[in-house]
Design a protein around this nucleic acid. Structure first.
Length: 587
RNA sequence: GGGGGCGUAGCUCAGAGGAUAGAGCAGCGGUUUUCUAAACCGUUGGUCGGGGGUUCGAGUCCCUCCGCCCCUGCCA
């Protein structure tokens, strides 16, 4: 019999089938299968209670009928899972040791995990739109959440079978270029002259230009003319604009490389600049958009708020804005990329924008007979400074991402040197890089994305508790066991006896729970649920490690414990990979 | 004014309408002739912001009040 990757899904399916023939339950019965308190079992079905209420019957009697039908169906072999009715009408399920063993024997490497999980979104094309920095500016701490969460979501969706297209929708066509080009020309700055840190220079130049245009109306007018020249294709300005973008991209790539982030496409706003006119035309022809106060806007009369709060898709001066390019971008992704689903990873302040965008796109696509992809705004909370106020990009002193990553690595290096002085410097540097950057990343991912995030060096770089180093350390210990026995991870597992001790069984149960954790993580695209699971797994492993010696004399006991070590390692590494964190063999 | 988010242990945070609200940190007390002590074990700590309601059952849903953050026509 096929060993279910996700036992929760198997129990759910068996209960639905069993319920179909029972009066009062039927085809629409939702058993509400959830992971449960280990005191009660591995999973519990809560669905009987509300149903019994709605049909005015005794919940325990109804549960009894369901349980009898379940037994008769033989969908869940008794050797694998037991169940009982408990309390007012819960049904508790407990996985049996033979199932735990069968599961661990089946899902015995990363490829098997991938195959087990890979049916969820098979055949779907999903565009993940994330990171999205602006050119001519350095990436700062405000970009980290979108970058790190987006990368993790892309990996999670791909792991579950989707064809993922990662698209970096960079801001490379804003009005800031008028001022910047003006300042570059006045300073006689040559962006192609091989400067050490051109982005630093652009930021200084922009500041100068900005100050100048504020005090001198003529300069402001000149900046506008430079912008118009750029938009009209003036060769000199276009060349400058390209140079700025090239230098910016190089700086972005350096950050992305350190973070292990990759994109399939980098189609910035400029890519869509010739695609907005047809959007205006279609939205006007279909009556979705109309003129208001000189701008082209969309109202949604059926919506409480957006009936009066406009979605401005073309400014009164005729220029496009991010609503214009976002609309063109959806069309491109739907028609050219054949996207079934588009996931936008941005901060929560843009919720109104995306709600309006999605409403507009739905109407527009319906009116023009297009299929509308599933559109999701995956938002996250604001990054706050130590003072509890938002870190601003345009004022104050934003923490640059490269500086943050440098400091993370430095602090990690000091710590590694203290804890593992026997390792040579190159290895300590390499460990520090993985652990330091992993810590920064994990600190962000392990927290519910919709919460605000208080930026704090101490918090980001603390290596205590639910952190990346704790997970990495568990993996390093497993490697250490295999090293000590002169085996590679995965070797020495032959002749294993059945799992026996409490610590062994608890660890095995936790390992089987990976699929449920994945399911929960994907449901609302919340990576912190995967983090919580991995932390529990590492913690369960540590308990096992302290309770049971692995390298014992008895070959059958040693083999089964090595098997648990190996499965823990692949699960841990698979999970870390999904978060974008590299595993370590030694630390 | 309208809308969104948040408020849970001293601190940082988890909690899928379900059973006795959980972790980490900090605190207190233990564990190493042993596969990595960046660890493990035990323990202290709660009016889930206040009040009302719906429900067999509410930290979770509804109403209301208080406090903080954010958005709310030409930035993204």
């Amino acid at each position: 019999m096929h060993v279910w990757y996700n036992p929760s899904a198997a129990i759910d399916a068996a209960l639905r089938t069993a319920a179909a023939g029972i009066e009062g339950l039927g085809n629409d019965f939702d058993p509400q299968v959830r992971p449960s308190d280990p005191n009660f079992g591995d999973f519990q079905a809560n669905g009987i209670l509300p149903r019994a209420k709605s049909i005015r019957t005794n919940p325990r009697a109804l549960a009894q009928q369901l349980v009898e039908a379940l037994s008769a169906s033989a969908a869940l072999p008794a050797a694998w899972v037991n169940w009982e009715i408990a309390g007012p009408g819960f049904i508790n399920f407990r996985l049996q040791a033979p199932f735990l063993s069968a599961w661990l024997n089946t899902y015995d490497d990363a490829a098997q995990h991938r195959e087990g999980a890979g049916t969820l979104y098979a055949g779907q094309i999903v565009v993940v739109d994330f990171s999205s920095p602006n050119t001519a500016k350095q990436m700062h701490v405000g970009h980290i959440r979108s970058s790190v969460i987006g990368e993790s979501l892309a990996r999670l969706l791909a792991f579950c079978g989707a064809t993922v297209i990662r698209d970096n929708h960079i801001g490379d066509w804003g009005t800031q270029f008028g001022i910047l080009i003006l300042a570059i020309k006045r300073a006689g700055y040559d962006p192609n002259a091989g400067h050490a840190d051109p982005l630093e220079d652009f930021e200084h130049l922009y500041k100068e230009g900005s100050a100048l245009t504020k005090e001198d109306p003529e300069a402001l007018e000149e900046a506008r003319r430079e912008l118009v020249k750029l938009q009209n294709g003036d060769p000199e300005n276009v060349a400058l604009w390209r140079a700025i973008n090239t230098a910016s991209q190089a700086a972005f790539d350096a950050i992305y490389q350190r973070l292990g982030i990759q994109f399939d496409l980098t189609l910035g706003e400029s890519f869509y600049r010739d695609q907005v006119a047809p959007v205006y035309a279609e939205l006007e022809q279909t009556g979705i958009a109309r003129e208001s106060e000189g701008a082209l806007v969309v109202f949604h009369p059926e919506h409480e708020r957006f009936a009066t709060q406009p979605f401005i898709i073309r400014k009164s001066d005729g220029a496009s804005n991010y609503a214009s390019t976002d609309l063109a971008t959806v069309r491109y992704r739907a028609e050219e990329l054949k996207a079934d689903r588009i996931v936008y990873v941005t901060d929560g302040r843009q919720q109104d924008h995306f709600q309006q965008l999605f409403l507009t796109v739905e109407k527009w696509f319906a009116a023009t007979m297009r299929n509308c992809p599933k559109l999701q705004h995956i938002w996250f909370g604001t990054i706050l400074g130590e003072d509890g106020k938002a870190i601003k990009t345009r004022s104050g002193a934003p923490v640059r991402l490269k500086v943050l990553l440098n400091e993370a690595e430095e602090r990690a290096y000091a710590l590694v040197s203290e804890k593992a002085p026997q390792l040579d410097e190159a290895e300590r540097r390499s460990i520090a890089s993985v652990a330091g950057i992993g810590a920064v990343r994990y600190a962000d991912l392990s927290q519910n994305r919709t919460s605000d995030y208080t930026f704090s060096w101490d918090k980001l770089l603390s290596f205590d508790g639910n952190t990346a180093p704790y997970l990495l350390y568990a993996g390093a210990r497993i490697h250490s066991i295999f090293r000590k026995l002169e085996l590679s991870p995965g070797q020495g597992l032959e002749g294993a006896s059945a799992l026996e001790t409490e610590a062994e069984l608890l660890l095995a149960r936790k390992l089987v729970g990976f699929a449920s954790a994945l399911e929960q993580t994907l449901a609302d695209l919340r990576p912190h649920l995967l983090c919580a699971y991995l932390y529990e797994l590492a913690s369960e492993f540590s308990t096992f490690y302290n309770a049971e010696k692995v390298a014992v004399e008895d070959p059958s006991i040693r083999a089964r414990r090595l098997m648990l070590c190996h499965r823990t390692l692949i699960t841990l590494n698979t999970g870390l990979e999904l978060l974008g964190i590299q595993p370590l063999e030694r630390m």
